[in-house]
């Protein structure tokens, strides 16, 4: 079921285009990764979804209906640039933001207690934010983001600045919220950090959509057909055996008679064909497919797109 639909959004600032015809869709119980380098337009898009700014054209739908001011209560937003009121006490602060999201005092109190007990931080209630460490403040910010149980969770660079322990904690919470059915839009420039948790992704570069879809489909699409083969035997004989059906991309000697070679399948050859070809020549110790990282996919997609644009 669709939760968020962004349709043909265009946003221009004085002198430059921040978003150029961007469309995407997130589903219930799905983690959607909005990826792209710094300055690609991710934050601009997120601000439009949060109704902090408006688009020049295009529209945003939430649950199939055009997004309205009241829908703010259905969205949880953890900004990249996040701060808290330094002089305010932790409990009061969380209560304040909860009530701004439309929770009653009673509801807010129950949920604050629940989250603080879960994170075992009820002793912070009367601390001022300025007394907290950065990691502690980040937990508070995360609680503020999810306290009103939003249908759509927007996390802008959620792991930046988190220490590894807190990053893991937040990752677990995100997975749990996903299980409960929330749709999560996660934006980051650090592509590798989200690979393992995203179901779908969109790649934005220089205000344009470069690539989008299911992460596995994309990975399949960008499969390079390169395998890493570890063997015992002579590299010379190995390379000769490949002949015209396969190409040797890269090789590395481990010790005197063992090596790792990266081999690309050419034409319609399969991995079986490759194995058949090299088995007589060397002793195979290990075979792995080399899967492109999101970074590689991004670079490849940008290259293709630019190539396409020039045609």
């Amino acid at each position: 079921m669709e939760v968020l639909s962004v349709e043909n959004i265009v946003k221009q600032y004085a002198g430059h285009t921040a978003l150029n015809d961007i469309s995407l869709t997130t589903k219930k119980g799905e983690i959607f990764g909005l990826l792209g380098p710094n300055g690609a337009g991710k934050t601009s898009l997120i601000r439009i979804i949060n109704q902090i700014t408006g688009p020049d054209s295009g529209r945003v739908l939430l649950g199939g209906r055009e997004l309205k001011r009241e829908d703010i209560a259905r969205i949880g937003y953890l900004p990249e640039e996040r701060g808290l009121y330094k002089k305010m006490k932790v409990y009061e602060q969380v209560m304040y933001f909860a009530r701004l999201k439309g929770l009653t005092k009673k509801e807010a109190k129950e949920r604050i207690d629940m989250w603080f007990e879960k994170f075992e931080i009820t002793s912070w209630y009367n601390k001022k934010v300025e007394e907290l460490s950065k990691g502690m403040a980040q937990k508070i910010q995360f609680i503020i983001t999810v306290l009103h149980e939003p249908d759509l969770l927007i996390l802008d660079e959620p792991f930046s600045g988190f220490d590894p322990i807190n990053a893991q904690l937040i990752r677990n919470e995100i997975m749990e919220l996903k299980k409960k059915g929330a749709s999560i839009l996660l934006s980051t420039h650090n592509m590798s950090s989200v690979e393992e948790i995203c179901d779908s992704i969109a790649l934005i570069n220089q205000s344009k959509m470069v690539l989008k879809g299911n992460l596995n489909d994309i990975k399949n699409e960008f499969r390079s057909g390169v395998y890493s083969i570890q063997f015992k035997g002579m590299m010379f004989g190995f390379a000769n055996a490949l002949f015209a059906d396969f190409s040797l991309e890269h090789s590395e000697q481990i010790d005197e008679d063992r090596a790792i070679a990266h081999v690309k399948l050419l034409k319609d050859n399969t991995l079986n064909d490759l194995l058949k070809t090299i088995m007589p020549v060397v002793n195979i110790e290990a075979v792995n497919e080399i899967i492109p990282s999101m970074n590689d996919i991004f670079l490849e997609a940008v290259k293709q797109k630019e190539g396409g644009d020039h045609v």
Partner: peptide, 17 residues
């Protein structure tokens, strides 16, 4: 200025105009 420099304004205006 305090709200702006501490960036807390981002959280607030995702809830209010």
């Amino acid at each position: 200025i305090e709200e702006k420099t501490s960036r807390v304004v981002e959280i607030v205006i995702s809830s209010v105009k």
